[in-house]
Simulated assay, not measured.
Amino acid sequence: MLSNLLRLWVFALLVGFVEGAAGQSQDMSTPDGMVRTVTQDVLDRIKGDKEIQSGNLVRITELVNEKILPYIDFNRTTRLVMGRYWNSATPKQREEITAQFKLLLIRTYSGALAQVRDQEVTYQPFRASPADTDVVVRSTIINNGSPVELDYRLYKTPQGWRVYDINILGAWLVQVYKQQFADLIAQQGIDGLLTFLTQRNQQLANGG
């Protein structure tokens, strides 16, 4: 269940990032402009790299690390997903869980890329006050004729806007995985969660 939800989320995230801003140049200082600009940058990279198009994990990892992860605050995401268990984890456990959760996302990209075809993305009018520091950018993916809601939650940092949560089909990533992580921790402890994530990443690395 955990891996299936993550695959769906990553597919939506990838489609939103690579299909949503063709032909547009946006201001990175605004949250909607940042999302649109990153999408165009990633799309240009994919179009010019046949290794990425074929699902080469090394090249995909390079792309994600260079073009996408700088605009996602995975530490914040993992902290929110862990909830009250974050304070119970040691600094080393926090670091390792964050790294494994991020790796799970990256390794899922290889499968998601193969599914990107002719999806269309539209953005809803962005509404926020200039003083807002936590906002939502709303979009819709048309996939095989069916609309899929895809929203990004961002917050303002000294370095600019960063994505830390995403909504697909009415389910926010943090809410979904907070329960999943809590169930695993309740059954197996924090080390059990780390073992699960590590083993799942190993399965993906081996083509599982």
Rank of each mutant, 00 (worst) to 15 (best):
V58E: 13
T39N: 12
G145R: 06
D32T: 07
V135D: 04
K92E: 13
I68W: 00
D32H: 08
F74P: 00
M82R: 08
E62G: 06
T78I: 06
P31S: 05
Y123V: 11
A131I: 14
I72V: 13
V136Y: 06
R59F: 03
I141L: 08
A128C: 02
T90C: 05
P147Y: 00
Q93S: 06
P31Y: 03
K50D: 13
G83Q: 10
V135I: 04
T108L: 05
N143V: 09
V135N: 03
M82D: 10
F126S: 01
A112I: 00
Q40H: 11
R84F: 13
V116H: 03
N65Q: 08
A114M: 14
V116M: 07
G33C: 02
S129W: 05
T61G: 13
F126P: 01
S54M: 09
Q119T: 08
V121I: 12
L80E: 15
V136D: 11
Q40I: 06
T108M: 05
I46D: 02
V58I: 09
T37R: 12
Q124A: 15
I72L: 01
Q93E: 11
L103G: 07
S110Y: 00
M82Q: 07
K92C: 06
M34G: 03
G145E: 04
L80T: 12
T90P: 03
L69D: 05
E95M: 13
I97Y: 00
R36S: 10
A131V: 14
E66W: 08
D49E: 07
D73E: 07
R127L: 11
D118C: 04
T30W: 10
T37D: 15
R107D: 12
A114G: 09
N75F: 05
I60A: 04
L105D: 07
V42G: 05
R45Q: 13
E120D: 13
D134N: 06
E95Q: 12
G83E: 10
G145C: 08
S88V: 08
L43D: 12
I72F: 02
D32S: 03
R138W: 04
A128R: 12
A131L: 14
V81Q: 11
Y123R: 10
S88T: 10
R107H: 07
D44F: 07
Q119M: 07
R45V: 05
V64A: 14
K67T: 03
T90Y: 01
V64M: 06
P130I: 06
V136M: 10
D73F: 03
N65W: 02
W86F: 14
R76V: 09
E62H: 09
